[in-house]
Design a protein around this nucleic acid. Structure first.
Lengths: 353, 353
DNA sequence: CTGAAAGCGCTTACAG
DNA sequence: CTGAAAGCGCTTACAG
C-alpha cells in the first residue's frame, strides 16, 4: 500500500490531519486558551485516534525549563550521624538527573531549633521551587510549611516521618507503628512472662516525640494483642547528655528488678548501650538505625537488635519520585513504606544501608 | 564587564572558541576520525576548560536512536507464581522509560526445558539488542549466552541468581549463601541441641540446583561457625509432583524422630506445608518467597518464616540500571544484594513484595 | 482564534 | 580534514 504523503510523526501528523498548524495542536495539547471549540474537538479526536504520546525528550528540550527541587533535612550533628545517609541519597539522585535539567537546592535545619527550621522553610518558599522533599521534625511548623507549598501549588514529598492529614504527593518511610509492633514480636521471642520491658524515649524536642510515641504504641499493641502479661515500664528522657541519661537509667534499674529488655525508640540507643556496657547489666537491648556508633555495640554484643529502614534509599526515592512526577507526569505511589529490616551481629556485615 | 558576543552554550560555544564548526566539535566529542591532531587537541582543551557536559536530552533526541532492551525470564507456570513478580517489575520500569525512547522486548523460557532457554537466547542474540536482562537458570547454557553477549558487545545484567565468573554489568539479587546463613540463625533461636534439622531441596532440573546448594552451604556454615551439635538431614527431591514429595517426606519422618525444623531452600515450600498440615506434624517450617500459595500457610501457622527478597524490585532495578548505563553512561554498581527480608504471620500484611 | 518562524542542543548525511 | 544545512519533536514569542 502506498502512502500519498510521507508519514509524519507527533504534532506534525496531528496538524496535517486536522488541517491546522502545529502551534494550534500545541495549544490543545496543553489546554491553553485561544482555540475555537470546533477545531479543538477535531484535534482532540485525532489525538485519541492516534493515541498520541508526546516525546518527553523533545518536550523538555524545547521548553528550556530546568526543574528546581528543594530538599530540607536536619543538618549533621555531633549527636548523631544519622542524617549523613539521607544526604548521600539525595546526592546520588542528583548525580543521576542533573544532566537532565534538574537542579537540587539543599537546605538544612538544626534539629534542636524549630526557629532554624522555620527560617529555612521561608527561604524555600521564597525561592518558589518546582518541588520539595522534606524530612519533617517539628509538627506544627512542618504543617505550616506544607500548607504554604500547597497554596503555591508546589508538590512535596515527605520522608523519614509522616505528618498528620496532609496532601503530600507521597510519603516514603517507615510505618512507625508497625516497627514498634515488630520490635515487640522480637522481644516476645526472648522473654518469659515475669520479665519486664523498659521502653526509652530520648528526645529533647517535644515535637520530635510523636514519632517515638507511635512506635511505643505499636509495641504496646503487640503485647495487648497477644495477651502478654509482662510489665512495660517507660522512660521519657529529655536531657540528651550522657550524664542525665545515665542517672535516669541508674535510678530506674535501682527501683525495678527483672528488667530483661530495654527498647530504645530511636537511634540514640548507643548511649543506653554505653550505660549497659559500663554497668554490666544483663539485658537485651533493641534500638534503631544503622549508625557507626550503634554498630560498635552491635558487634560487641551489647545491642542485640537494630531496626533499620534504609535512610539513604528513602531520600533517593523521594527525589526520584518528585523527578518522575515533575518531568514526566508519571504516577507516584501515595505511600511507600520502607521494609523494616532487622540487623543483628550476624547479618550486620551484609546489610546495605 | 561586557561580553563582546552573546554567550553561547554547549557545542556552539566550543566551536566558536576553537574557530571550527560544530560538526568538528561533535567529531572530537565522540572520538570519530577525520580531525587533525592540532584542532583535536585545541578542542579537547576547550572542552576541559569549559567542563563541558553534553545535554543528554538533546543528544538522545537528535540521534534518533531508540534503545532496545531484551529481558529473558522463566514463563509463568502452574507450579509457581513466582515469576509474575519480576515480570511486573519489568513492566513497571517499561512504563517509566518507554516515553524516553526505550523499547523492551520480553522473552520467556520454560524452566523445565533447557532447550527452550537456548532457543530464546538465540533469538535474542539475532535481534542484537542494546542490552539484556537475564534471570539465569541453566548454568552452562546461560554462560554460553552471556559469552555471546560479550562477543557482540551487548551489556547484560543478571538478577535473581548469579553465574560463576562472568563479566556482567551488574548482578542484582540475593546473596544466596547469606540467606541460608540467616535461615540458620533463625532456626538456632528456635531449637535445642538434640533437635534435628531437615533441609529440603526441591528441583527437577539439576542445573537449577547450584542455587539451592549455595543456601544449604550457608545454613551448614552457620551451624559449624556456632558449634551447634544438631543433626542436619538433607533431602533432594527431583520429582516435583505432590505425590512424590509426600512419599519422600513420609519416609524421612518415619525413619527419623526429633525432626524439629524443616527448611525448604526455595519457593516450593507450600507443598511441604501441605504435607505437614495434612499429617499434622509439629515442626517449624521455613521457606522462601512471598507467593500466594505460601502465604496461605503462613497465615494458618504452618509456615513459620518466609525469607523474601523483593523479586519485583530486583527486575525493576535490573531494567533501570541498563537504562541508566545505556542512555546516560551512568556508573552501575557491579553487585546489588537485595535485603534478606523475614516475613512472619505478624509482619506479613505489611510486607511489600 | 490561528499560523509562520525561530530555537532548544545536539547528530547526521552530504559536499567540498 | 572540515563546514553548511537539515532535522530530531517539541515550545515559544510574535504577527495578524
Amino acid at each position: 500500500m502506498k502512502k500519498s504523503t510521507t508519514e509524519l510523526k507527533g504534532v506534525k501528523e496531528i496538524a496535517r490531519r486536522a488541517n491546522v498548524s502545529i502551534a494550534t495542536v500545541d495549544r490543545v495539547l496543553h489546554n491553553r486558551p485561544g482555540v475555537s471549540k470546533q477545531t479543538k474537538d477535531k484535534i482532540n479526536e485525532i489525538i485519541i485516534e492516534l493515541n498520541y504520546q508526546p516525546n518527553l525528550l523533545a518536550q523538555r528540550l524545547a521548553s528550556r525549563k530546568t526543574i528546581r527541587l528543594a530538599t530540607l533535612i536536619p543538618m549533621g550533628s555531633k549527636e548523631t550521624s544519622y542524617w549523613e545517609a539521607p544526604l548521600s541519597g539525595i546526592e546520588q539522585a542528583e548525580g543521576e538527573i542533573n544532566q537532565l535539567g534538574i537542579i537540587i537546592d539543599k537546605y538544612f535545619y538544626d534539629q534542636n531549633s524549630s526557629d532554624s527550621f522555620t527560617d529555612q522553610t521561608k527561604i524555600i518558599l521564597e525561592s518558589n521551587p518546582d518541588g520539595v522533599l522534606l524530612a519533617p521534625s517539628f509538627v506544627e511548623e512542618s504543617v505550616k510549611f506544607t500548607n504554604g507549598c500547597t497554596e503555591l501549588g508546589i508538590p512535596y514529598v515527605l520522608f523519614n516521618s509522616d505528618l498528620p492529614n496532609n496532601d503530600s504527593l507521597s510519603y516514603i518511610g517507615p510505618n512507625l507503628y508497625q516497627s514498634g509492633y515488630l520490635a515487640a514480636q522480637l522481644i516476645s521471642y526472648l522473654i518469659s512472662d515475669k520479665d519486664k520491658v523498659l521502653i526509652v524515649n530520648i528526645s529533647k524536642e517535644i515535637d520530635n516525640r510523636h514519632h517515638l510515641l507511635k512506635k511505643e504504641e505499636g509495641t504496646r499493641a503487640y503485647f495487648k494483642d497477644h495477651h502478654k502479661p509482662n510489665d512495660i515500664l517507660k522512660l521519657d528522657i529529655k536531657q540528651t547528655d550522657y550524664k542525665s541519661i545515665e542517672e535516669t537509667l541508674s535510678e530506674t534499674f535501682r527501683e525495678n528488678d527483672n528488667i530483661k529488655v530495654v527498647f530504645v525508640t530511636n537511634s540514640r540507643v548507643s548511649w543506653v548501650a554505653r550505660y549497659i556496657d559500663e554497668s554490666k547489666k544483663d539485658v537485651i537491648l533493641i534500638g534503631f538505625d544503622f549508625l557507626k556508633e550503634n554498630l560498635e555495640y552491635v558487634n560487641n554484643g551489647v545491642i542485640d537488635f537494630l531496626i533499620c529502614q534504609k535512610p539513604k534509599e528513602q531520600a533517593y526515592r523521594g527525589v526520584m519520585s518528585l523527578y518522575k512526577h515533575l518531568a514526566f507526569s508519571l504516577p507516584v505511589e501515595k505511600v511507600h513504606f520502607m521494609p523494616i529490616d532487622i540487623v543483628t551481629k550476624v547479618n550486620c556485615p551484609y546489610y546495605q544501608n
